[in-house]
Amino acid sequence: MKKYLLSFALVLMSLTAFAQTDYEKVMAEKIAKIETCKTPEDFQTLSNDFQRIGSKESSQWLPPYYAAFSQIQKGRVMMRNGNTQDLDGVAAQAEKYLGTAQSLAGADNAEIHLLKKMAYSLRMMVNPQQRFMTDGARASEELSRAEKLDPSNPRITLIKAEDIYFTPEQYGGSKSKGVEMFKEAITKFNAYKPKTSLDPNWGRGEAEYFMSLPTENKK
């Protein structure tokens, strides 16, 4: 009887390890696709993929996190293309996934608060003048929470750099100050180590892109 129980336990452990390995493999493949997505449709498909993974791995916070991140990236592409009227819906979907991720990871997760900041920023861009004091203020609050929880996080510095870089000077923005913060972000990327191979590690390429722009674009 003891031998039977031991054998059963070993089989169960093997199946659990296999399932975990399969999960990590699929997640790694999907995370790698983030860098190759170009269109809103690409990011929507990827978000759907992460959502399906999350429905099977209901105890893991990373699938809904990446589903939300894919939605946010979709919104950022739409914004660059001048399509801001649909950003509320995109932000709402991202916030739905972030709610799931936070319920699994806890309230003290800087990466989740940073994405919440980015979702509020998408909402603000629907009508910046009207929403600066509402969604803009909420975005700032989420960014502050993220920074307090993880001040060495390079993605937080990256998003702060973007905000300063793209904000007009009359509203407190500065391309030169933004560039300095992109440099700071790269320094932090060099030192920062994700907790696992699946944990958020995006953003370095964006910081490097801004650093590679011609000097006249940084003034």
Rank of each mutant, 00 (worst) to 15 (best):
K3G: 03
K3H: 07
S7V: 12
A9I: 15
M13C: 13
M13Y: 07
S14T: 15
S14A: 15
T16G: 03
F18K: 07
D22Q: 08
Y23E: 09
A28V: 08
K30V: 01
I31M: 14
E35F: 04
E35R: 09
T39E: 08
Q44W: 02
T45G: 08
T45A: 14
N48Y: 06
I53S: 05
S55Y: 01
S55K: 03
K56H: 04
Q60F: 05
Q60I: 04
Q60K: 14
P64G: 11
Y65I: 05
Y66F: 12
A68C: 10
Q71A: 03
Q73G: 03
Q73F: 07
Q73T: 06
R76K: 13
R76W: 11
V77E: 09
M79H: 11
M79G: 01
R80I: 09
G82R: 07
Q85V: 09
D86W: 10
D88Q: 10
G89S: 14
A92D: 14
A94G: 02
A94H: 06
A94N: 03
Y97N: 09
Y97Q: 11
Q102K: 10
A105T: 11
G106Y: 05
G106I: 08
D108V: 14
N109E: 14
K116T: 00
S121T: 05
L122Y: 14
M133Q: 15
D135S: 12
G136V: 02
A139I: 00
E141F: 12
E142L: 05
S144G: 02
A146H: 07
L149M: 09
L149G: 06
P151I: 04
R155G: 00
T157C: 10
E162F: 13
D163T: 13
P168G: 06
G172N: 04
G173D: 06
S174F: 07
S174G: 05
G178Y: 12
G178C: 10
I186K: 09
Y192G: 01
L198A: 02
D199H: 11
N201M: 09
N201W: 06
G203H: 05
E206W: 09
A207Y: 12
Y209D: 05
M211D: 10
P214Y: 05
E216R: 11
